[in-house]
Amino acid sequence: MYKAVVIGGSAGSFQVITKILSSLPKDFPLPVLLSLHRLKHVRSGFVEALSIKSKIPIVEPYDKETIKPGRGYLAPSNYHMYVELNKRIALSTEEPVNHSRPSIDLTFETAAQAYRDKIIGIILSGANRDGAHGLKKLKQLGGTAIVQDPNECQVRTMTEASLKLTSVDHIFTTQQIINFLLKLK
């Protein structure tokens, strides 16, 4: 029944993301939208680093690219990544939101509007509050909201901000997130 997964992460999320991506099978039935903050000076090489362990292909999409199942779409460095209602990627260089570009909030909010109750949103470790509003919108529109267990996070600020704003469906460890995703058909 689900049509997409959207994941937001910041400081301390890289290993978690890598672990999740390495656990998904090649024929994973959904697209995985990734809105991840990166350090200012590390602008390239990120997609390659994620691709090493991932069995699904990871791309930094082009603007207007059609979203397909079984692929990972990483918000390109220095762009916001939106989902249009026709399930295409839209990129933007508008000013950073809460000092972030990509903004996790914007990816979550637009993905939620496109996929309504057919999306799973996952917020991971991070040192800021980005993603909290986006996850709230996603939950309001009927999506399934998951937050990484703050006790497991390297930096718990982002997950706690999300939990404060939204009553989520699940608080999961990395392994539980993986188990949940593997059960999807």
Partner: peptide, 9 residues
């Protein structure tokens, strides 16, 4: 114009 960014602006 693209809908999402126009709406945001």
């Amino acid at each position: 114009y693209s809908e999402k960014s126009l709406k945001r602006r």
